[in-house]
Nucleic acid binder design. Structure first.
Lengths: 232, 232
DNA sequence: TGGTCATTAATGTGATCACAATTCAAAGGC
DNA sequence: GCCTTTGAATTGTGATCACATTAATGACCA
C-alpha cells in the first residue's frame, strides 16, 4: 500500500455541517502545512481515500483544489505530488511573500482598530510562550494567525488567498528546516509592527512585516546552509 | 434551461491529447476572461455539462479549480457564480496587480535576453495594430501576453499563477468597462518598459509596468465613473 | 392583490463502475 | 550481471446513479 514512504497525517475533527470534500481538503491542507507529506512523494487518490476512509470522489476534488493553490503539483503523468523545493524557488517565494504581505499590511493599516490590535497582542504573547517551551509548530501556526489578523483587517482585501498560496508552497520545506535550527535569536518584529500600527505609520509597518518575514527565513542567508537543508 | 440569462460561450478546439477536464477548464476560463459569463449569474454543473456536451464530472472539477483561482465564487448555498465587482474590490485588485507585477518584473529583468525583447517588440506592434482597428479584445489579450513574456523570463518565477488569478478576477469587469470607453489616449508604457530593459534599469521597469497597469484601469480614476460602470 | 405554505423540480454531493494509460516487477535475452 | 521486454497491478479519468438539500412554482388564504 505504501508506495514509497509510510505517511501519517493527523485527522481533523469531522463536522457534519461541512461536506466531505471540504473536510478532506482541510485535512490534506493541514498535512501539507505540517510537512506530513514529504516533497516528491506521490499522492494517489485511492491511497488517500483509504487513509481517510472516504470514497475517491472527495479526494479527487480536494487534490485538484490544492493543486490550483500550489500546495500540490500535477505532473505531466497526471500524478500528484508535493512540489520539490529548490534554492532559487525558495528565494523567489520569500521575496514574493515580502512584496505581497508588506503591500497587504499597508492596505490594511487604516482598518486596524484597537480591538484587533488587542487580539494581535494576545497572539504575540502566545508566540512568546510557545517559543519558551520550544514548540516550533505552535510558533509557526500562531505566527501565521498574527499575520492573517493584520491583512484581513481590510474588509476589501483580495490578497489573502494569494498569500495563503505562498504559505502553502513554503510550509513543507519550512517544516524540515525548522527541525534543523529551531534556536536562533530573533528581534521582536511583532512589537515593531504593533508600534507602527499605534502610530499609524504605514512605512514602518511594511518594513516591520518585511523584516519579520526575512527573519523567519533567516537560515536562507547563507546559500550553502540552504543547499544543505534542501538535500536533507 | 436558461436560468436567468442565456449564455453563449466560444468553444475551444478539442484536442484528444488533453483530458476533457482540462478542455472544460480552459473553455470556461476563457469564457470568464471574455466576460461571457455575467457576474452574479449562477453557473450550474449540469447546465455547463449540457452546453459543452460532456458529463457533469469534468465540469465539477473544472469549476472547483476555477473557484480556487478566484475566477468563480462558491457561495454558502454551494452555488457557483462569477463574483460581483465592487468599487473597493476593483481598487484593491488593481493595487495588488501593481504590487505583484512590478515586483515580478524586477525579479525577471536579469533574465530578459535579446530574443525575448524582440518577441516583446513583436507583441507591441500587434497591440498597436489592434488598437488601430479598434479590436479591444485583441488588445487586452496580447497585452496580457506582453506582460506574461516579461514575468516568465525568470525561470524560477513563482508569481505568475498569482498574477493570473488577479487577471481572472478583473477580467469580467474590464470586459464590461472596455465596451463603454475603448477610446482613451494612452502613453506608450510598453516602450518605456522596453527601454528600461535595454538599460537594465529595474526601477524604471517597475515604474513602467506600474504605470501601464494604472493606465489600463484609468477609468477608475473618477469614483463616480467607476460606480456608474458597476451598476451597468 | 399580496403574502405564506406545500409541492415539485433542480442542484450539489458522494459512491460505484468501466476503461485506457501508466507504472511496476518479474522474466527473458544480450 | 545489466538491459530490454512483457505481463499484471495500479492509477487517473469519465460516466452514471442515488440521495439530501435547496430553489422555484403554484395553490391557498387573508
Amino acid at each position: 500500500m505504501d508506495k514509497h514512504s509510510p505517511i501519517q497525517i493527523t485527522l481533523e475533527q469531522r463536522d457534519d455541517a461541512v461536506t466531505i470534500t471540504q473536510w478532506v481538503y482541510s485535512t490534506l491542507r493541514q498535512a501539507v502545512m505540517l510537512g506530513q507529506l514529504p516533497p516528491g512523494r506521490a499522492v494517489t487518490i485511492r491511497e488517500m481515500a483509504a487513509l481517510l476512509d472516504v470514497s475517491p470522489m472527495p479526494v479527487r476534488e480536494a487534490l485538484r483544489q490544492l493543486a490550483a493553490e500550489g500546495a500540490l503539483e500535477i505532473q505531466g503523468n497526471r500524478r500528484v505530488m508535493v512540489p520539490r523545493m529548490t534554492a532559487m524557488k525558495f528565494s523567489e517565494l520569500v521575496e514574493a511573500r515580502i512584496a505581497l504581505e508588506s503591500h497587504a499590511a499597508g492596505q490594511a493599516l487604516p482598518y486596524i482598530d484597537a480591538q484587533r490590535l488587542a487580539q494581535m497582542r494576545t497572539l504575540d504573547e502566545q508566540i512568546d510562550a510557545a517559543e519558551a517551551t520550544g514548540d516550533a509548530e505552535t510558533v509557526m501556526r500562531v505566527n501565521q494567525d498574527f499575520h492573517r489578523l493584520i491583512y484581513t483587517a481590510n474588509p476589501h482585501q483580495v490578497t489573502m488567498p494569494l498569500i495563503e498560496s505562498l504559505w502553502l508552497q513554503l510550509a513543507p520545506f519550512m517544516r524540515v528546516a525548522a527541525a534543523y535550527l529551531d534556536e536562533y535569536y530573533q528581534i521582536d518584529r511583532h512589537h515593531e509592527a504593533m508600534d507602527a500600527i499605534t502610530r499609524q505609520d504605514p512605512v514602518a509597518l511594511k518594513l516591520a512585516v518585511a523584516a519579520d518575514i526575512r527573519d523567519g527565513c533567516a537560515f536562507a542567508s547563507s546559500p550553502e546552509t540552504l543547499q544543505q537543508l534542501l538535500s536533507a
